[in-house]
């Protein structure tokens, strides 16, 4: 069972649509992470070649435990980044993927994250930052990534960062568990308001 299916269980089922948008610069590992979170049933992930670069957007719809997920991966290329905001505004949660082994582009990643969060306005959508490729020897520690992204300045949005690796699957469970908790509390508080 993929981790996103588990997330649905943690959320307590119920025919609810949770749309998670996955953003990050090109080559940060978004496609690989989605595959690790929701492995296609055919072949074991290890045998598969790396996914081809995503052009435009790629949507992954699936239901698990009565919760239907729509994970949208938006291409990270320079031209596609302008589309991020639109997808973010429609999402219930944001997974932001950073290539921790590419310190040069951390500053670009920070600038794009700030742009997308600013476009979200007053929305309090949980933000999960995955410092991906942590299996690589040249990868930065996730706290260094947090600092480089100036996450401490992110206000009004519950956020969490963890080291992750799409290749080994490390760190994904922690991240998804946090996301589930956040979604459940916002969901509960929303229910309470009604």
């Amino acid at each position: 069972m993929g981790l996103l299916e588990k997330l649905s269980l943690w959320l307590g089922g119920g025919a609810r649509e949770v749309s998670v948008v996955v953003l990050g610069l090109d080559n940060s590992g978004k496609s690989s992470l989605l595959r690790a979170l929701h492995p296609p049933p055919r072949t074991p992930a290890a045998e598969e070649p790396p996914p081809p670069p995503t052009v435009g957007t790629r949507q992954d719809h699936f239901t698990a435990g009565g919760v239907s997920f729509s994970a949208v991966e938006v291409g990270g290329g320079r031209r596609h980044r302008a589309l991020w905001e639109r997808h973010y505004r429609a999402a219930d949660a944001l997974i932001y993927v950073v290539d921790a082994a590419d310190p040069l582009r951390l500053v670009v990643s920070r600038s794009e994250l700030q742009l997308v969060l600013a476009a979200g306005g007053a929305r309090r959508v949980p933000l999960l930052v995955l410092a991906n490729k942590s299996d690589r020897p040249d990868a930065l520690h996730h706290l260094q990534v947090a600092q480089a992204l100036s996450l401490e300045q992110v206000q009004g949005v519950p956020w969490h960062i963890c080291a992750a690796s799409a290749a080994s699957g490390a760190g994904l469970a922690e991240g998804v568990a946090w996301l589930a908790r956040e979604l459940r509390t916002t969901h509960a508080s929303r229910k309470g308001q009604h």
Binding site: L25, N27, D102, L104, R105
Partner: peptide, 8 residues
Amino acid sequence: QLGQEEHV
């Protein structure tokens, strides 16, 4: 281009 970033 430096790394993967075109305009450096």
